[in-house]
Amino acid sequence: MIKAVIFDMDGLILDTEKLLVKYWCQAANEAGFPMRREHALNIRSLARKFAIPYLQGIFGEEFDYVKIRSRRMELMKQHISEHGLETKPGIAELLDYLDSKGIPAAIATATDIQRTEDYLGQVGLLGRFSRIVCAAMVENGKPKPDIYLYAAEQLGLPAGGCMALEDSPNGVRSASDAGCVTVMVPDLTQPDEELYSRIFAKADSLADVPEIIERINS
């Protein structure tokens, strides 16, 4: 029985993963490090404590994660100020469905609370979530399960009573290891054999999620 739904944000609710990939690569290359798309894809939703050794393992210890990340954030902020944010298809309909069923919605994101609230506010969705949990609120961010376990705790539910919606491999690993009913809604990465073993279902868009919930709860 699904009693709550926990959403990732970037790449699932907001069409921002393409910006993260683009501007991670630009910021790193400006600093003299030849980051490619595949490197940026691998750090989506990855907590800093795991991203730093991953990137320094590729580019060397001189890779200044904090400085390059700051530049990436600056580039993204400029892009968003000029072009705004786009939501992913089906989010409004899914939230309306959850409201109609009395199923609470929460956020579990690697993005900090200030930017999370700012982004959701910009697209008119801030008031649609009963809880917002960010990686800084737990000891270990994604791909560890802490953030989903804490989000479920905040909802007053066991993780197994929550559906987790994720678009990235690191997010899927986090949610599935927490014991959530995990549904992948791919954005820039399709599930491979490992991810298929972790998910309950794959949805082509958020608009397909109500049918999955109905199947489980019927």
Rank of each mutant, 00 (worst) to 15 (best):
P169L: 09
A105H: 03
Q190V: 08
S218M: 08
N29T: 14
G179M: 07
F63S: 11
H39M: 11
P169R: 12
N170K: 09
D96C: 07
R198L: 15
L94K: 03
E61V: 11
G160Y: 04
A164L: 09
R128S: 09
S100P: 02
A106S: 12
Q154E: 14
L46F: 08
T116P: 06
P145R: 01
L19V: 01
E17W: 00
P104N: 08
Y119W: 13
E166M: 10
G60T: 12
R215S: 11
Q78P: 02
S45Y: 03
D112G: 09
L149V: 08
Q190K: 15
L120I: 12
E61Y: 08
R44H: 09
T16I: 02
I91D: 00
L149S: 01
K144R: 13
L55G: 02
P145E: 04
M1T: 13
I6R: 02
S174N: 07
V21M: 05
S81E: 15
E193C: 01
V181P: 00
A151M: 06
G11D: 01
P169Y: 10
G32P: 11
L188Y: 07
I43K: 00
L195D: 02
E82L: 15
M73T: 11
I68K: 03
D118H: 10
Y119D: 15
D96Y: 06
Q78F: 07
G57S: 10
T16M: 01
P158M: 05
A151W: 01
Q122L: 14
I68N: 00
I216L: 14
I199F: 00
R44S: 06
G160W: 04
L125S: 04
A136N: 13
H83D: 08
V138K: 05
I80H: 07
F63T: 10
L95I: 07
L12F: 05
E117G: 06
R173N: 05
S197L: 09
R72G: 01
L165V: 12
R173Y: 07
M9R: 01
Q114A: 15
L94S: 02
A207C: 04
P158K: 09
K67R: 15
A31T: 06
D167N: 12
E82G: 07
P191S: 10
A159C: 13
R36M: 14
S174L: 07
I147F: 04
C134D: 03
K144H: 13
L95M: 10
G141D: 03
P145A: 09
E38V: 11
C134Y: 01
L120K: 03
L19Q: 02
A164F: 05
I147R: 02
R198T: 04
V138M: 07
A136C: 10
D146P: 02
V133I: 15
R69A: 11
R128V: 02
E194R: 13
V183D: 01
A159P: 05
V5M: 04
L14A: 07
D192T: 08
I213E: 02
A207E: 06
D118E: 15
E62I: 13
G161P: 00
S45T: 08
S45K: 02
D187H: 10
L98A: 03
V185L: 08
Y54P: 05
K202W: 02
K67T: 15
Y196A: 04
A110T: 15
L94M: 14
P89W: 09
V66S: 14
M184S: 09
I13S: 01
C134N: 13
A110E: 04
V21W: 00
D99Y: 06
A203M: 10
D187T: 08
R131S: 03
S218Q: 12
E38K: 14
D177P: 00
T182G: 06
F33Q: 11
